[in-house]
């Protein structure tokens, strides 16, 4: 079972890779909409990538209003 710290790290690494950013350039408290400047379709792509990576289903309404990686990782952790 992953710890929340591990999950958070994997979320950050995955986001950095997906958006082609240098490793370690994202922080748990970052607002990903502001930091990544993503639109609705990119948000869905990221959701798919997270679900595929963690092997979970994360309904959109559970991450609605979530804008930082730390809270996103917590939502994922609750589904692991």
């Amino acid at each position: 079972m992953r710890t929340l710290e591990q999950t958070t790290r994997e979320v950050l690494d995955l986001a950095a890779k997906h958006f082609q950013l240098p490793a370690g350039s994202l922080a748990p408290e970052d607002d990903f909409f502001k930091k990544l400047g993503i639109d609705s379709l990119q948000t869905l792509e990221m959701l798919s990538r997270l679900e595929n990576h963690f092997g979970i289903e994360l309904p959109d309404y559970e991450v609605q209003g979530v804008s930082d990686f730390k809270t996103l990782a917590e939502r994922i952790q609750s589904r692991l």
């Binding site: 798919s48 595929n52 289903e57 309904p59 309404y61």
Partner: peptide, 10 residues
């Protein structure tokens, strides 16, 4: 009823 999106695997 939820309007949620479903991933391809599901």
């Amino acid at each position: 009823f939820t309007g949620r999106t479903l991933n391809a695997s599901r």
